[in-house]
Design a binder for these strands. Structure first.
Lengths: 275, 275
DNA sequence: TCATTCAACTCGTTTGAACAAGTTGAATGA
DNA sequence: TCATTCAACTTGTTCAAACGAGTTGAATGA
């Protein structure tokens, strides 16, 4: 009976929200209502100061809320712009079928991106290090054993997309030297290994999200308010032997992941999964 | 030839990093180096003002960087505390085997949480609405058709863990009325449906990350710097018929997800996957 | 002993000012 | 015409001051 009264007192009886939050709330609903569509420019701080009758610091505090929510991006000299994302979807469960793809198709990233009509680009770097305790455990090698780290930073149309670090145990690299080739392995490393008899028949995937470290934010060119997706895939051979551990950091605003599970015949043949 | 000179000028020749960023960088490395372990308190603003010789606003700007990185949390009157996470791992691929579990085990959430020695708690709410265009398409019903929305907010030891909204097409609820029961379906709704002949044999999962909306931040009790994981699972029967679409919002700092793919016999039997 | 009060601490909000630095487009001059 | 300059914008950084509001523990008093 007093439900509505209680609600009202939640709003009215409480001390009013601080001004900077009112500014944030107002601008947020203006954005989500479409009055400032993605890619458009917000009013300048000067205009907002006049509109809300607030000091500059207060206006900036309000805008900062929206920045940390990933809604807007500031640019010195140019104003604030509403974020516009273009989402790329990765089908992680399809990747287990990668071994059956044709070798001339190239690696799956370039493949997917080109299929979407975009231009892929990759940078590689290879390092040899000692395995950390965790890496050693996951790759089932002795503590402090050698591993080869294969870094890869990926771009789509020159926009940084993901950074990847794959750990291979030394014994595997010795038998498959192209893994330590700092250049691209055109057909993809998984395919390369499979062709040489090291078939990954099972994967353990882990997904998490967090804010990027400063290094990651720099490499992926993302500012505050944009989280990253962290993907850790461990690949196993049929002898239960782990052969690689890949850590991929995705820009959270640009990427989605899908898994198809169970009797895939029961799934719609043509997933019309527009975001 | 001038490569190195350019590099040096990037570091030395450039104007020094602004003071608030120096403060952020210093405090960040203090934290990551373990000088302020998780759960410990940072020096007060007053102390940092003295240590860095900066104005209070500048110190706060520095700390704000760490807040939006999810590293620290401020509390009025109590100071800044280094974040401490306790991560809960959800095995999403195991859930496809849920139908073969024993009915008396209860739903999988309560199950998992109790298995970890924690106290689960759930709140339910049910609504009947018209399907949005997207919902109608995904659930393969006519546009504007009725759907039943089943909300669930989950807690672990009274900490908000996730909020979930499941859409069921009206025809399914008519045949299985307990779906519109605002209370808990003890054995889990998937199990309940399976027992009544509606077996979900395939799933399409989508994962994404973003910053929470203000509503989500309130419901999950998370502040700036903590992203959410968004999980959308669509369940299909063997007749290729979608029967539900579940959207789950997880606190990103508390949750991890795993998938086991491929020939699971090749995976280590006892996953010692400590974070 | 025990509950209360309250001073001294903490962070939260807001103002106003000043200068630095990046961007843009119009005016300028070759 | 075309490149340059520069004024007038934009956001970025920093300072100083004041008051509000939550927390804590020691002093106080019953």
């Amino acid at each position: 009976m007093y439900e509505q009264v209680a609600r009202v007192s939640d709003d009215v009886g409480m001390s009013p929200a601080p001004l900077y939050r009112q500014i944030a709330d107002t601008m947020r609903s203006d954005i989500t209502a479409g009055r400032f569509p993605p890619g458009s420019k917000l009013p300048s701080e000067r205009e907002l100061i006049d509109r809300f009758g607030a000091a500059r610091g207060t206006v900036r505090a309000g805008l900062n809320v929206l920045i940390t929510e990933g809604l807007i991006t500031p640019a010195q000299g140019r104003g604030y712009q509403v974020q516009q994302h273009e989402v790329f979807t990765l089908d992680a469960s399809r990747h287990e079928n990668l071994l059956f793809s044709r070798p001339e198709d190239g690696d799956s990233f370039s493949n997917d991106v080109r299929h979407a009509g975009r231009a892929p680009h990759q940078e590689f770097r290879v390092e040899v290090t000692e395995a950390s305790a965790e890496a050693a455990q996951r790759l089932q090698i002795e503590d402090g054993g050698r591993i080869v780290l294969r870094y890869c930073r990926r771009f789509v149309d020159d926009t940084p997309w993901s950074i990847q670090a794959t750990q291979y145990p030394q014994w595997l690299v010795s038998e498959n030297p192209r893994l330590s080739d700092p250049g691209d392995v055109v057909e993809g490393t998984t395919r390369y290994l499979a062709d040489r008899g090291v078939k990954q028949v099972a994967f353990h995937d882990e997904w998490a999200t967090r804010m990027p470290t400063p290094d990651e934010a720099r490499e992926l060119q993302i500012g505050p308010g944009i989280p990253v997706l962290v993907w850790v895939r461990t690949g196993y051979t049929s002898e239960k032997r782990p052969v690689r551990r890949t850590v991929t950091i995705f820009r959270g605003d640009l990427n989605r992941v899908t898994y198809d599970l169970g009797d895939t015949d029961a799934l719609p043949t043509e997933e019309v999964n527009a975001a």
